[in-house]
Design a protein around this nucleic acid. Structure first.
Lengths: 208, 208
DNA sequence: AATAGTATTAACCGGGTCGGTCAACAGGCT
DNA sequence: AGCCTGTTGACCGACCCGGTTAATACTATT
């Protein structure tokens, strides 16, 4: 790929990247017209081929970009160091919301990439996509202090419930094209507070 | 469309229908090759064009078929007449499982149809797809007796939690192509039982 | 204003795909 | 053989798509 791309104003880079996410998220790799990406980015197809040698290079660049963006966001949010499970979830939510605002089609793109079947690509895709991204997260639940939770609660099932509801929540948002960040966050906060009230012994602090 | 189609053995009809669901679920209407459908159904493209005048007719037929199938299934399951919410959910689950086994790609197809943008189609799609199918179901929660639930539970939030988790559950299953019906049902039963244990006052009967 | 250098595009090419048609074929029945 | 019904391979014209290239617009420098 042409290094000139990095010299572009960030604004324009993002427009191109998002256009790529959008088109590749909608169609298979093979059925995603480069022209459509260029159009959506507001540039000509020729220029796109000036920055990226060919379609494949563009695609793989986008895939690497996903990794880069998410890793950076996760590190910045401090989502890894968690004391209590609800805190972790809240942090995760905020980063996800920020990401969805900046790159609306990124997650759908990466999901589609994960299931891409094109023989030219699948090998290289699996080389780039970090395996843990799509792992069944609920199996790696963080250590929790059982004393904090109400008696008789099956913690594994609790985590499963929370995890599934979160997935459903994000999924519904990714479906509709109307994405109001504030509403999104406050709705999810309500959910977290509800879970706290149901599962936690002491109805203590609410998340800020 | 040609009435001869209905004279076909049910087996063959289903193969064609499912092939249509599968291909149209993967791609946009415009980018769904009729040939691929024929191939997947094990017949020739020519024959497909013998039964259906053109691509559009085939598509709309499939859409009407979705309505027909789901309506029939819902009526048969008695999912409408519900005493308690968990019972309703359980019935709904079983019908959904049955449907997913018989028509694996149907729900993804109908979802995609809902968001189809093709100018030739969107008008006629909206004419066929019954509006209530995609309504936010959790707003139409059935009348519940508050006494049965533990004190202090926010019933609306409870229903929201359950609804979202179910969506997430179905969504995860629709993603992966491995669909084990038994495992599916038993997993969901576990969830329902968990919810009962958490939300209900008397830990009574488990669902059969 | 002329030049030079860079960013950007319109026009084009060859190969492939797709919706749709049609003449032909296969197989059972009389 | 002749007929009917179900089925297909081969074909067509239009369009699409990845990629190239020659030309244009833009900007800065002299």
């Amino acid at each position: 790929m042409n290094d000139k791309f990095y010299a572009l104003p960030r604004e324009k880079q993002k427009r191109i990247i998002n256009a790529g996410f959008s088109v590749f998220a909608k169609n298979t790799y093979k059925k995603s017209p480069v022209n459509e990406i260029a159009l959506e980015a507001g540039i000509s197809k020729s220029l796109l081929f000036f920055y990226f040698r060919n379609k494949k290079e563009l695609y793989l660049f986008l895939l690497r970009t996903v990794e880069e963006i998410t890793n950076k966001a996760l590190k910045e949010s401090g989502a890894y160091e968690g004391e209590d499970i609800f805190d972790i979830m809240y942090k995760g939510l905020m980063t996800k919301a920020r990401l969805m605002k900046a790159y609306p089609d990124m997650s759908r793109f990466s999901l589609k990439a994960y299931y891409e079947k094109d023989p030219d690509l699948s090998r290289e895709i699996r080389k780039i996509v970090s395996p843990y991204t799509r792992i069944e997260t609920y199996k790696a639940l963080p250590p929790m202090d059982p004393k904090k939770f109400k008696d008789g609660i099956d913690l594994n099932m609790m985590y499963r419930d929370i995890f599934l509801a979160s997935e459903g929540f994000f999924w519904k948002i990714e479906q509709g094209d109307n994405f109001n960040e504030d509403e999104f966050v406050s709705e999810y906060k309500k959910l977290i507070d509800f879970w706290k009230s149901v599962y936690l012994k002491e109805e203590g602090w609410k998340c800020t």
